[in-house]
Design a protein around this nucleic acid. Sequence first.
DNA 1: GACCGTTTGTTCAACTTTCAAGAAGCCGTA
DNA 2: TACGGCTTCTTGAAAGTTGAACAAACGGTC
Lengths: 171, 171
Amino acid sequence: MDTAPNGGGGEQPRWLSDDEQRVWRAYRHATTLLEDHLDRQLQRDAGMPHIYYGLLVQLSQAPRRRMRMTELAKDAKITRSRLSHAVARLEKNGWVLREDCPSDKRGQNAYLTDAGYEVLKRSAPGHVTAVRQALFDRLSPEQVGQLGEIMRVMAEGLQPSDPDADLPWLR
Amino acid sequence: MDTAPNGGGGEQPRWLSDDEQRVWRAYRHATTLLEDHLDRQLQRDAGMPHIYYGLLVQLSQAPRRRMRMTELAKDAKITRSRLSHAVARLEKNGWVLREDCPSDKRGQNAYLTDAGYEVLKRSAPGHVTAVRQALFDRLSPEQVGQLGEIMRVMAEGLQPSDPDADLPWLR
DNA sequence: GACCGTTTGTTCAACTTTCAAGAAGCCGTA
DNA sequence: TACGGCTTCTTGAAAGTTGAACAAACGGTC
């Protein structure tokens, strides 16, 4: 950074232009509407929130349907703490189980049970349809491409990358 | 709908293509990263979650800095229940107060106090900077335009519009 | 005026998320 | 082997969210 960070206030920032404000509002509006919509759809049809559903999907795609907790948390972009609670809940449903990791006694593997797989199989079609109706069926192919690129750029800037990335003098 | 709704399963849906899956993952990834980022930024610099900050902003822009609860909930796209809890919390902070609505004895107005306004004034620059750094400074002007249009289309399809909109035969 | 369906805002209980703390195991070094 | 720093996962309490149920007030109709 070549200017002081603008953490808690201080000098004036560049405010958003009218256009930018409109886009920002549209972004907030659309993303929250979609998230609410999918959360409700899955709560209704699969009995769990969107993020839990995502965990089952991840597990279903992993070799032998199992993953280390930390890895799963990283892929799902949630904290280990949150994952612990989530897996505890999914375990109560009988959709996921935990087992000790053979190679690291600290570790746990979460794995998808057959019951969990069935839930997924049953609710996946409805979910895909919901995503399609809300997003892909409404956008032109060009727009889908644009959206992908924009999201890629956004993520790039937010990646919780190397914590020392801001401290080149320590390298 | 000309085909049966695909609510809880049943016939095969059209799955997402590989490209669509990539875009969908990128979307999920980027939007959650950004939301987490801003939530933390505001929790740290303003002492409240993003959505609460949004409520203060709305109030600050309303005439006489006050709004009916239902209207505020609608604008912020949250339930009245959630708003009740949120305002109770903001009231404890002294940033918002409630008053009876003069024209409707059921109603309540929430209004922004001077203290609330100060918090906003103090934390707005840091917030705008965070939004800028994460989004607008990374996208080309064309991309900003594309994003706005895409979000507009998305919201259009998700708008909780007239509840009878799906029932033309009742009109 | 009495009725009835609707709107408004709150409350409760169940659930989810966050944050800080902590127990346990890993690994490099002496 | 013992030590110290790090990683892994869990826990508990506080905070936030959800959905259903509720009392109060509104507003149109008889």
